[in-house]
């Protein structure tokens, strides 16, 4: 595209688009510091709702559940997703490849009600006790597909002659991968982990289907509160979650700058 020409139309559409994306979040964050119980009345700045959250045992349990499900499932998903990406990007043609890539790409758009329901029916059939592990497995299944896409697109954009050069200089395939390929895709893998963690932290539907009684995740709790109406405490929790995600993004972009090679950083698609 022609670069550098900023027409008024371009600028306006961009500015409006970004305002549309950000304003609601900014408003939510501001209102989380509202002292008043009434949402429409500004009662001055206060940390009252944060105190309330940290005194709310059930909410804290849910938050802990979400964080641990997120961490474990993101790690599993990163491992499996990276392996899958290697298989797709370097495996050439093999039997069952179309099925494999189909299984990995379709969960990206599959309606969550379907994924959730089908996984629950599997867990019931396997007679598995529903709770932490069932949610973790469900989230791993969903998020590893995102990891695969991120890592695979990085792998396919890599110059294959780097691997050949490594072999030429005495590496067997495994060492060529570890010493030359892996350092090039590390940012994509990290981005994949974060994406998986955040998606897990975000999910209501699949978690609702696959969790058992007494082990609700934070989004499930938020969701049931939200259905009853707006509560200032929810504003505070949401702000905390946004803050956590912001920290993760900042760390990640910092890390990717540190290990920056010329290659483009991985986009989430």
């Amino acid at each position: 595209m022609a670069v550098g020409r900023i027409t008024r139309f371009n600028m306006t559409s961009l500015a409006l688009g970004l305002a549309f994306l950000y304003l609601p979040i900014v408003i939510l964050i501001i209102y989380s510091f509202n002292a008043s119980r009434l949402v429409n009345v500004w009662g001055g700045w206060s940390l009252r709702w944060y105190h309330e959250f940290f005194g709310d045992r059930a909410m804290l349990d849910a938050a802990w559940m979400s964080l641990s499900v997120g961490a474990v499932s993101a790690t599993l998903a990163t491992l499996l997703g990276t392996l899958a990406a290697i298989g797709l990007a370097r495996g050439e043609r093999f039997r069952g490849r179309a099925l494999f890539s189909g299984m990995l790409y379709s969960p990206l758009v599959m309606p969550e009600v379907i994924s959730g329901l089908s996984l629950l029916l599997l867990f019931v059939a396997l007679n598995a006790e529903r709770g932490f592990w069932t949610v973790t497995i469900a989230h791993t299944t969903l998020t590893m597909c995102f990891v695969t896409v991120v890592v695979q697109s990085r792998l396919t954009s890599l110059d294959r002659s780097l691997e050949e050069a490594a072999m030429d200089l005495g590496c067997d395939p495994l060492r060529a991968f570890l010493l030359v390929t892996l350092p090039q895709i590390v940012t994509a893998i990290v981005a994949g982990w974060m994406l998986a963690f955040i998606l897990s932290l975000d999910d209501v539907v699949i978690a609702s289907f696959t969790t058992g009684p007494g082990s609700a995740t934070l989004p499930i709790r938020i969701y049931s509160e939200v259905r009853l109406g707006v509560k200032p405490e929810i504003n505070a929790i949401c702000t905390l979650v946004i803050g956590l995600i912001a920290v993760i993004i900042v760390i990640a972009s910092f890390a990717s700058k540190l290990s920056s090679t010329r290659g483009e950083s991985a986009a989430p698609f």
Binding site: L21, L28, V226, I234, I242, I245
Partner: peptide
């Protein structure tokens, strides 16, 4: 600009819906 478009995608979508309920 790309970053600015992606970042909301990284923030919880439930929270974004909730933000609209607020408004």
């Amino acid at each position: 600009a790309m970053m600015l478009v992606i970042v909301p995608f990284w923030t919880s979508f439930l929270i974004r819906i909730y933000a609209w309920i607020n408004i």
